[in-house]
Amino acid sequence: MNSLKLAAKILIYGTLLIVAALILYWLVFHSRWSWFVEYLPLLIKGLWLTILLLVLSVVLGGLLAIPIGLVQVTGPAPLAWAAKTFCTVIRGTPLLVQLWLIYYGLGSLFPQIGMAYPGFKENFMWLIRLDGFYYALFAFTISFAGYEGEVMRGAFLGVPRGELEAARAFGMSPWKVLTRVWFPRAVRFVLPTLAGETVLQLQSTPLAFTVTVMDLMGVTSKIRQDTFRIFEPLMLLAVLYMCLTFVIVWGFSFVEKMVPQKR
């Protein structure tokens, strides 16, 4: 038994060492990083676009998620049904299909309308010429709203009934109950899950490069096409995304500590 364990240990260490040595060998003797300086300004712009996409879609999608979650709890029934369907459809289809539906579908619809109505073409030229970034932002926002709407529904349901009844007994209007008691309590439930959701959202932003957005991923694929280097840009990209992930996790744990929590 002991010699078996030793053999397994040697095997694992050996494999790890060989893999590490191979990667190191490749990094030292075969990898080329001369493109890095030339593409640094583009990379910084790409990083900025990635962060912009992430922050805007999380903020806008989060705001959109509040009513989506709320109407599922309070009704009226048709709105609740619509919100429920929206969440199911968004969560049940791949983001890539949603993104391409919006980009290619709307992207070809606007010029068609412009063709049929010259007035539309004159007044809404910006809509026809819209950059891929805005389509990506729209797709990511509704995707985040769909996932987060479901979370908000659970959070609104999780607030104890008695607290809402107490607020009503104080004579608060429904709006005041929502802003003073219901919403602040629900947000406390959501806060711990928000870091994970934001990380997942960050991990779906590279899809934007398929609709011509020059985010980090888009710049990387340009580097790959220009220099024919495959691994170096992708490795750099993986490291950058890992750093962004850790920044998000660290940032949210910092915020969570600031918010007073009753245990």
Binding site: L202, Q203, T205, P206, L207, M217, L234, Y241, M242, T245
Partner: peptide, 9 residues
């Protein structure tokens, strides 16, 4: 920690 798309590539 790394996006699925980048891992796939």
């Amino acid at each position: 920690a790394v996006p699925e798309l980048i891992l796939i590539l």
